[in-house]
Computed example of a mutant assay.
Amino acid sequence: MSQLAIAQIFKALGDPVRLQIVQRLSNGTALCMGELSKDLGISRQGARKQIQALVSAKVVQLHPVGREVKVQLDAVALQQGRDFIARLEAQWDKRLQALKQFTEQ
């Protein structure tokens, strides 16, 4: 995955409303727009705009089911973001270990 795609994932997750939407979808179930936008403290139109930002970042996918549209979390995209963080964490662990060894000498 490109650096740009990873940046888009983190940018999408940087908004509190979008983060709340992702959290609601985190159990793996797909929810319709109405269920998902309920009690977000924003208009339905605002919720759609936030969901579209998540779609653009490929964090969620839309699936038409009859007259409704279900929103589902894309676990692959989130895993790629998690992998990026894990690589950074490993680099920092290595650097901190080297610093520890240096200071103990």
Rank of each mutant, 00 (worst) to 15 (best):
Q52K: 02
Q3Y: 06
A5Q: 09
R24Y: 13
K58Q: 13
G66K: 01
E89I: 08
A30F: 06
S56G: 00
V69N: 07
Q23P: 00
A90F: 09
T29D: 10
G46Y: 02
A7C: 00
L25W: 11
L19M: 14
V22F: 10
A75Q: 09
R87C: 07
F84C: 10
V69L: 01
K49D: 00
L54N: 03
A75E: 11
Q3K: 00
A90G: 07
I51D: 01
G28P: 05
A12F: 01
A53R: 01
A5S: 12
R24D: 15
A57K: 05
Q20F: 05
Q105W: 08
A53P: 02
R67V: 15
L13I: 14
R24G: 13
L96T: 07
L54D: 04
K49T: 10
A47I: 05
L96E: 10
G81H: 05
I85Q: 02
L40A: 04
V65I: 10
P16F: 12
G66F: 03
P16Q: 04
Q101A: 15
V59P: 09
R44E: 12
E104V: 12
L78P: 14
F102S: 07
L62S: 05
L36C: 02
L4D: 02
V17T: 12
G34P: 00
E35A: 11
V22Q: 01
A47Y: 08
E35T: 09
G14R: 10
L96W: 09
F102H: 10
V17M: 04
M1A: 04
G14L: 03
L19I: 00
K49C: 13
Q79R: 14
V71H: 02
I9D: 04
T29P: 03
A57P: 08
L96R: 03
D15L: 09
V60W: 03
L36M: 05
M33V: 15
A75T: 13
S56K: 12
D83G: 07
Q97A: 15
Q105F: 11
L4S: 07
D83A: 12
A98P: 08
A5C: 02
A86T: 14
E68C: 13
D93W: 04
L78F: 11
Q50W: 06
E104Q: 11
I51R: 01
A5L: 06
Q50V: 00
S37L: 03
S37D: 01
G81T: 05
L36N: 05
A12M: 04
S56H: 11
L54V: 06
Q20D: 15
G81P: 10
G81L: 02
V55I: 10
G81W: 03
V59F: 08
Q91S: 11
T103G: 10
Q61P: 08
M1G: 05
L40F: 00
Q8R: 07
K70S: 11
K49L: 15
Q50G: 09
R82S: 14
V69A: 02
L25H: 11
Q52D: 07
I6K: 01
D93A: 09
H63L: 12
V59N: 04
G41Y: 03
M33N: 11
R95A: 12
P64M: 05
F84R: 02
L19T: 14
A98V: 14
T29S: 13
A90W: 04
L31G: 01
Q52N: 07
